[in-house]
Design a protein around this nucleic acid. Structure first.
Length: 206
DNA sequence: CGGAAGATCCACT
DNA sequence: GTGGATCTTCCGA
């Protein structure tokens, strides 16, 4: 398995361009001697200032979302609902606030370790391990300590893998952003069609 | 300083 | 399908 990291230039493009290009790539996490690999199957783009669903909406800048304004190629990790961590890849130029939320992955290596970290039994259904942004983070042991880290680092990176062709990509509105007004309907969610590890069945059409 | 909301998940009906 | 868990963060007073 080829685990060479994507170059940081990959992320210095708009989030809505990076998000579909990340599906099929390999998210790699090193924990001690163990190497965990998730094949990304679902992502969402967040556009920054003009996007009411983004943590950077209106240029909002707080200690919590500071790393969202780093140049593309950094991790943005945030805590939500009092118990969950979520992992993003910052995109574009510094101070733009664009990012891609990594929503779901398919275990390729280290599945037993991921199951253990998720507190699951031996037999699980697809999607239980990393079929959701908080599940993905928990399976890989991602927390605040990785906020602001570079995505070609020693403990966390995204490898080239093989991007999923447009034909196999489903596209639709993002999950959990009903509060975002018009932006709630923007089709910025991308998932591999018919992949059972996706957090929810792909949108009917689009 | 209080209150409200949140890029979610899980158990239960 | 619905509601509860759980707590950090932020904003307004």
């Amino acid at each position: 398995m080829d685990l060479d990291p994507l170059p940081l230039a990959f992320y210095r493009r708009p989030a809505e361009v990076v998000a579909p290009d990340l599906v099929g790539r390999l998210l790699v996490r090193r924990l001690g001697r163990k190497t965990l690999v998730l094949r990304l199957v679902e992502t969402e783009a967040y556009l920054g200032a003009p996007d009411r669903a983004s943590h950077a909406a209106g240029g909002r800048r707080t200690p919590r979302n500071e790393s969202l304004y780093l140049p593309g190629g950094h991790a943005y990790v945030y805590f939500v609902y009092g118990m969950h961590w979520c992992l993003n890849a910052v995109c574009g130029e510094a101070d733009e606030g664009g990012a891609v939320l990594l929503r779901a992955g398919e275990p390729l290596r280290g599945e037993a370790e991921m199951r253990a970290r998720r507190g699951l039994a031996d037999r699980v259904r697809p999607g239980d391990i990393a079929g959701g942004p908080a599940k993905l983070a928990q399976a890989l042991g991602v927390d605040r300590s990785l906020d602001g880290a570079l995505l070609d680092g020693r403990d966390l990176w995204i490898a080239t893998g093989e991007p999923v062709g447009r034909r196999r990509l489903a596209r639709g509105p993002r999950i959990g952003v009903a509060y975002a007004g018009e932006a709630a309907a923007w089709p910025l969610r991308f998932a591999e069609r018919d992949n059972l590890h996706v957090s929810r069945p792909p949108p009917p059409r689009a």
